[in-house]
Simulated scan of single mutants.
Amino acid sequence: MASITDNKRRALGKGLDSLLPRVQTPAASTPTPSAEHEGGKPREIAVDLIDRNPFQTRSTFDDAQLSELAASITANGVVQPVLVRPQANGRFQLIAGERRWRASMQAGKKTIPAILRQVSDEQAMEITIVENLQRADLNPMEQARAFERLSREFHMTQEQMATRTGKDRTSVANFLRLLKLPGTVQNRVESGELTFGHARALLALVDRPDLEKTAARVAALSLSVRQTETMVQGMLNPEKAEKKESKPEPPVDPNVREVKDRLQRALGLKVTIEDKNGRGKVIIEYGKLEDFDTLLEQLAGVRA
């Protein structure tokens, strides 16, 4: 019998609709708002009867993109219905589609096509995260806070969060680690000044008082992730960094470099040439036996 986890992975692969139980029509009773258009067909709902999803993981919406979407809605209407769940007070709560809802209000629309689903708080939050991850990337901090909320409010393990959002457990753990960064550094990541890679490199300094100053320097100098990693390692191991700086690599003869490049292109393997006054050695590195067999055939004409 397939496990619950396997079933969930298959559900994610089928799209959002497979995660959403359909609203059931009460037998022998007058149809209620939650029962209308049962079967997944959209209905028009007044935009002012819809409340924002309290589990929304996206904290910022690009004004220019919203204006473009509003202009498109004015011209062509809402192409894809939003997803809502009925509330006891006769109102509706968004599950997915906040950008379309906001843009519809901006375009002056009185109603918006919506599909009704009856889901729990946990399902609503799951669907919000999945919908955002599938349609437009959240920034790293939004993802980190979403995973933290799943853990805190719904007591999910990292493995469960990974399964339900389609990410691997290591990625979930790395996002959660970002929350250890000071607020000022998190703000730089959220604004795009620093990338996820920069943030991961800076985590090595999380217990040091100069972390925020270092993050500001990385942003000001527009350092790459590799440069940031090098700088952080130099801060953590100053003696090693000084030793490396005190012994710069000797200049390589242009002719030797050219021969090395030609050999690497011909063999398809990493080649190192150590030359001193016309004497030295050539080192050819291989990563697997198939590479060694190919090398043997190229150099000696011998098939392994």
Rank of each mutant, 00 (worst) to 15 (best):
R52P: 00
E153K: 05
P21R: 11
Q158N: 15
T170F: 10
R188L: 12
A201I: 03
Q186A: 09
E212M: 02
I95T: 12
R226I: 11
D210A: 04
P209T: 12
R169A: 15
F292Y: 11
K260I: 10
A241T: 11
L19E: 08
A300S: 05
S171K: 11
L133G: 11
V119L: 03
G280C: 04
V79C: 03
Q56P: 01
Q264L: 05
V252S: 07
V23A: 15
V302E: 13
L267C: 01
R279D: 11
S171F: 08
T165R: 02
R85M: 12
T32K: 07
R262V: 09
A35C: 10
E245K: 14
P248W: 06
V206F: 08
E239H: 03
E258Y: 07
F55I: 00
R208C: 09
G268E: 09
P21V: 09
L181H: 09
E44W: 04
D17Y: 09
P21F: 07
L205P: 02
M1C: 12
T157R: 02
D207K: 10
R226A: 15
I95R: 00
A266S: 07
L133K: 14
E36P: 02
K288G: 06
T228Y: 06
A96F: 04
E297R: 14
M156R: 10
S191Y: 01
M125D: 03
T30C: 10
V232E: 06
M105G: 07
Q118N: 14
V206H: 14
R149P: 02
V185R: 08
V119G: 07
N132T: 03
E285R: 13
R99I: 06
A266T: 06
R145I: 09
K240F: 00
G40M: 06
G197F: 01
L205I: 08
R217I: 12
L12C: 06
E122T: 08
E190I: 02
K110A: 12
P113S: 08
R43T: 06
R99T: 12
E285H: 13
L289D: 14
E131H: 13
H37S: 15
S191P: 03
R135E: 13
Q80H: 05
T128V: 10
V252M: 07
L211V: 11
I284K: 01
V232F: 08
Q186L: 14
T165A: 11
R99F: 05
Q233C: 03
Q298T: 07
A201G: 08
T5N: 11
R85T: 15
